[in-house]
């Protein structure tokens, strides 16, 4: 009987000590990391396009943190899904096609002579990249435009085009040597932007 008591007491004491140690450690060595929402938001491309069904990247980041699928961001594309999967330690899944397709980065361009100055696109732009005033022509600040498409539907005269950004000489990057096929002899297959 005494043995039993001793054994039980010992175990309880050990359990208590270990528990306190763990508890102490969790308080003492608490990691002050980025909250997960911010980390997710860092990965999202910040186009604020709403293709995911949420009104911006931050809300989608919050939704992901609460269990929403990670494959609802077409601008982020495959690379974005991979990064999210790595961060959240979940499996890589394919892009949800109901949200849209991964395309080349785009920029909005207003055909300025057709613009009637209704300010509707200015209100729609999530990053304030369109300037103009009522009854005056509007224009897109190209450097600020995220290519989210949100300004296109509100335009009553359909004068906004989404133009793909073709890599110019400045944006050009060296191709992956692992993908360069020796048979493919011409370096001129890169799309060329013609300006007259």
């Amino acid at each position: 009987m005494l043995d039993l008591i001793i054994a039980t007491t010992t175990l309880v004491v050990i359990a208590f000590l270990c528990g306190s140690l763990l508890g102490y450690a969790s308080v003492r060595f608490k990691v002050e990391g980025n909250p997960v929402v911010d980390q997710i938001n860092e990965i999202l491309p910040q186009t604020q396009c709403g293709q995911c069904g949420f009104p911006g990247c931050k809300p989608y980041a919050e939704a992901i943190a609460n269990g929403e699928a990670i494959n609802r961001c077409p601008p982020g594309g495959e690379a974005g899904i991979k990064a999210l999967a790595e961060l959240l330690d979940v499996e890589v899944i394919e892009l949800d096609e109901s949200c849209g397709e991964e395309t080349l980065p785009k920029v909005a361009v207003i055909r300025e002579d057709e613009c009637i100055g209704c300010t509707k696109c200015i209100q729609a732009c999530p990053v304030d990249a369109i300037v103009g005033a009522a009854k005056h022509m509007h224009t897109v600040i190209e450097a600020e435009c995220t290519g989210c498409d949100l300004c296109v539907p509100p335009c009553p005269v359909d004068c906004i085009d989404m133009v793909e950004i073709r890599p110019g000489v400045e944006e050009w990057t060296w191709p992956n040597p692992a993908n360069t096929n020796p048979e493919n002899t011409s370096p001129l297959q890169i799309p060329v932007k013609h300006i007259s």
């Binding site: 910040q46 990247c57 999530p126 191709p175």
Partner: peptide, 25 residues
């Protein structure tokens, strides 16, 4: 060279997305 240009591209994209985030906020 591939690595250098990819890293530069990523850094540029990060700058752009950071700017977009700030503007959105």
């Amino acid at each position: 060279r591939f690595g250098k240009s990819e890293i530069k591209k990523i850094k540029m994209a990060q700058v752009k997305s950071e700017k977009a985030k700030q503007r959105f906020d």
